[in-house]
Amino acid sequence: MTMVITGNSKLQSEVEDLCDVNIDACIQCGTCTGGCSGIELMEYGPRQIIQLIKLNQRKILLESRAIWMCVSCHICEDRCPAKIKITSLMDTLREMACKDSKTKSNAQIQFHKLYIKQVKSFGRSHESMLTVALSMKGTPLPPLRLMKDLITRMRVDIKPPHRPDKSYRLAIKRLEKGGSIGHGN
């Protein structure tokens, strides 16, 4: 079957509105996929993801494993001859998936949410508290031998978490009231 694409898909317009990319500039060369750091565990590489956006495959994309296996390494966009900001595009797709009520949680979503919760309350992340919080959600603790070796080498942060200034807490409050800034770089 030959497929003729006329005009931009709805998904393409939606994505382009959210982040600063020009999907049409993609020449499907595959350079991005060739060097992708998450490719072994993705069912679609970044080149295919661009194609799926053009084909309006919203459900497939937002439910894909691929968007969560992207580690934001910037290698794809660094090499892309069309200068497409693929790393931002992946961020955008993940954010769209998180906002979609049909998206099932996974290890990455769980991690990001815990991390963000911590950053919102303390202004910074705290490795040991994060590790404990993750384990309470079912992520196995690091191997015992590793924890022991880190503790004896005094590599584990045992200080109480940071207490951010009022200016920080106010900024978070404004965000939670719905302040937002569109995607970009």
Binding site: D91, E95, H112, V119, P164, H183
Partner: peptide, 17 residues
Amino acid sequence: DWNCCGATSAHSIDHSL
């Protein structure tokens, strides 16, 4: 009072943050 830079979780799922 510097705060977390946002990597990787904030940029991954909450761009405004």
